[in-house]
Nucleic acid binder design. Structure first.
Length: 355
DNA sequence: GAAGCGTGGGA
DNA sequence: TTCCCAAGCTT
């Protein structure tokens, strides 16, 4: 066991150097700002999804100073469609914290990094390892899968007990590894292994550097490790969204930071048809003047939302938007901080916005 | 400490 | 189609 543990990290390093990924946009840099941005975007998000967002964001905000100087409303559009929008709000807060309390110098010590908003233990370790080669352990979805299979760890990985075991093994693997371990290759290698070899569906054990000593391979338990999370009943909700069109503009409102789509712009939303009707009545029209559109369903990670859009194109004079409301012109749609389903809904209507 | 928090892709 | 979950963190 101790022999299999002591060679674990170095085998991953050797494999990474020859067979891992080396040309992702956030590799081949030691700039903690760029590394940090990639790590935040990659939280619960696949590489292919992040690529375009990463380039666009860096073009607009090349340094942590540029990001800190911006208003949150300038940042959110660059996150629109990527999901988990608290990441963008925390990213912005973090940049301002670094500007104010760290003299504008991006920290590279994991113990400091983990105190910053949006940076947890795994992200802190990844930034420190990639930027200055700190000997810090990461623990993401890839690493959990590799460790569960190699060491034969059973139990849903989100449970505290399982998580604790995994972190312990991760620290052990580092302690027993050679003093000169290449931390960048080790950190990247764990992710590459999980993403390319030790995949969820059909792991490519023939090409795996961890064949020798792998519990799952020896017991043919790849299919049952990691232990899948017990699935629960998907909750469902429904709402009504108002598409109030004036000329080539649409009324949108900024959502509160708490809750779904926090800090993003969205359509005025109502729980019931009666609430929508009341709103319309108070604004000089009625539900009868609105055109009911086909329902669409949006699936979140923890519930399913049935959306009934209502289109109103009757011009309503005298309407003064509330502080959290804005008129959005059709040409602003593409660059507005709209969540994915709202963006798609409005884009589908774009042909109606003939000037 | 369990629940909340997006979206898209693959099996 | 349906289900799972991906470079997790916050409250």
């Amino acid at each position: 066991m101790s022999d299999l543990l002591s060679t674990f990290a170095q085998r991953i390093v050797d494999w990474q150097v020859s067979h891992g990924r080396h040309h992702l946009p956030w590799q081949n840099t030691t700039d903690p700002y760029r590394i940090w941005l990639s790590e935040i975007m990659l939280q619960q998000t696949q590489v292919s999804t992040v690529l375009d967002y990463y380039e666009r964001f860096l073009t607009r905000f090349p340094t942590v100073q540029d990001l800190a100087a911006a208003h949150q409303d300038e940042v959110m559009p660059y996150w629109a469609g990527l999901g988990y929008y608290a990441r963008a709000r925390n990213l912005h807060r973090c940049a301002q914290t670094i500007q104010q309390h760290h003299d504008g110098q991006f920290p590279t010590d994991s113990r400091v990094l983990v105190t910053l908003p949006g940076i947890g233990p795994s992200t802190a370790a990844a930034i420190a390892a990639f930027s200055v080669g700190e000997r810090a352990a990461i623990m993401d979805g890839n690493v959990k899968r590799v460790f569960c299979r190699y060491f034969g760890v059973y139990g849903p990985t989100h449970l505290r007990a399982t998580e604790k075991q995994l972190w312990h093994l991760a620290h052990q693997a580092l302690e027993q590894a050679p003093a000169k371990l290449n931390m960048r290759a080790y950190t990247q290698g764990q992710m590459d292994l999980g993403a390319q070899i030790c995949t969820r569906g059909q792991p490519d054990c023939q090409r795996c550097p961890l064949q020798q000593g792998c519990y799952a391979l020896a017991h043919q338990a790849q299919g049952e490790l990691p232990t899948p999370k017990p699935r629960t009943q998907q909750a469902e909700r429904s709402c009504h969204m108002l598409i109030w069109q004036q000329g080539n503009q649409i009324l949108v409102e900024q959502r509160p930071d708490q809750g779904i789509w926090g800090g993003m712009l969205s359509l005025p939303q109502f729980e019931t048809e009666a609430d929508l009707a009341q709103f319309l009545t108070h604004h000089g029209t009625s539900l009868q003047q609105a055109q009911k559109m086909a329902e669409l369903t949006h699936v979140f990670s923890h519930f399913k939302l049935h959306i009934t859009p209502w289109l109103v194109h009757k011009p309503m004079a005298f309407y003064e938007p509330k502080p959290d409301e804005r008129w959005l012109a059709s040409e602003q749609l593409a660059t507005a901080a709209l969540p994915a389903p709202v963006s798609k809904l409005l884009a589908a209507l774009a042909f109606d916005f003939t000037p």
